[in-house]
Design a protein around this nucleic acid. Structure first.
Length: 194
DNA sequence: AATCGCTGCAACCGCGCGTCG
DNA sequence: TCGACGCGCGGTTGCAGCGAT
C-alpha cells in the first residue's frame, strides 16, 4: 500500500497557470495569508489545483520581490561556491540569494552554470594535460581545483561573514552539514584549519 | 517553408521529516 | 508510542521557443 495522494488527481487541473488563477491565488494570499494549510487553500478560493501546486506557484512566481533570470557574476560565484561546499541543497543556496528561488537556482545550475563550469574544466584540462594520462581520482581532484583558489577564498570569506553575523549559523554547526564527497570534506577542512 | 534537434524553464512527482491528535 | 497528515525539498519531465539544416 502506497502513500495516499495529497489531492484528488482526477479533479485537479495540471499544467501552466492562467493569469486568472495567478490573480486569484495572489489576491487571496495577500489578503488572508496561506492560513498554514496549502491543501485546503485551493478549495477556499475555488481553484481546481493541488495545494502543492499552489504553494509552488506562490513561492516561485507570485511572491513579492522575486527576481527572474539575469543572474549576475557575483550570484554565479555564490552558487558555485555553495554547491562545492554543500552540494545540491538548493533551498540553502537560495537563502543566500535574496529574491531567488530554489527552483530558479536549480534550473540555472542544471541548464547553464554546470555547462559553463564543465566548459571551463575542459578548457583547463586541455591546457594542463596534453598527455591525457590523468586517472579518474586525479581528474576529480583537478575538477575541484578547476574552480580555482579564488573560489575557495570567496567561499571562506562568505562562511566567515555568515559566522560573524550569526554564531549559531549553519556554517558553524557541522552536525547540520550533509554528507560530503571526500574531496569536499578535505576542502572544507582546509578552510576550517587555516 | 518545413522539420529536426537543442535549450531553458515551468511544473509535477515522490520521498523524508516534523507535527499533531 | 504510533499513525495520519501536511510541508518542504530535490530530482525529473514536458513543452514551447529558437536556431540550424
Amino acid at each position: 500500500m502506497g502513500r495516499a495522494p495529497c489531492c484528488d488527481k482526477a479533479n485537479v487541473k495540471k499544467g501552466p497557470w492562467s493569469p486568472e488563477e495567478d490573480a486569484r491565488l495572489k489576491a487571496y494570499i495577500e489578503e488572508h495569508g496561506t492560513g498554514g494549510n496549502w491543501i485546503a487553500l485551493p478549495q477556499k478560493i475555488g481553484l481546481k489545483r493541488c495545494g502543492k501546486s499552489c504553494r509552488l506557484r506562490w513561492l516561485n512566481y507570485l511572491r513579492p520581490n522575486i527576481k527572474h533570470g539575469g543572474f549576475s557574476e557575483e550570484e554565479d560565484n555564490i552558487i558555485c561556491n555553495l554547491y562545492i561546499s554543500i552540494g545540491s541543497r538548493w533551498s540553502i543556496i537560495a537563502a543566500q540569494l535574496p529574491g531567488r528561488t530554489d527552483n530558479d537556482i536549480k534550473n540555472y545550475w542544471n541548464t547553464r552554470l554546470k555547462k559553463k563550469l564543465l566548459g571551463r574544466r575542459k578548457q583547463s584540462n586541455i591546457n594542463r594535460s596534453p598527455s591525457g594520462q590523468s586517472e579518474d581520482h586525479l581528474k576529480d581532484a583537478e575538477d575541484a581545483h578547476a574552480l580555482s583558489s579564488s573560489a575557495l577564498e570567496r567561499l571562506q570569506l562568505h562562511m566567515q561573514l555568515q559566522s560573524l553575523q550569526n554564531p549559531f549559523s549553519f556554517y558553524n554547526t557541522p552536525a547540520l552539514w550533509p554528507k560530503l564527497h571526500p574531496l569536499q570534506e578535505k576542502m572544507i577542512q582546509t578552510l576550517l584549519d587555516p
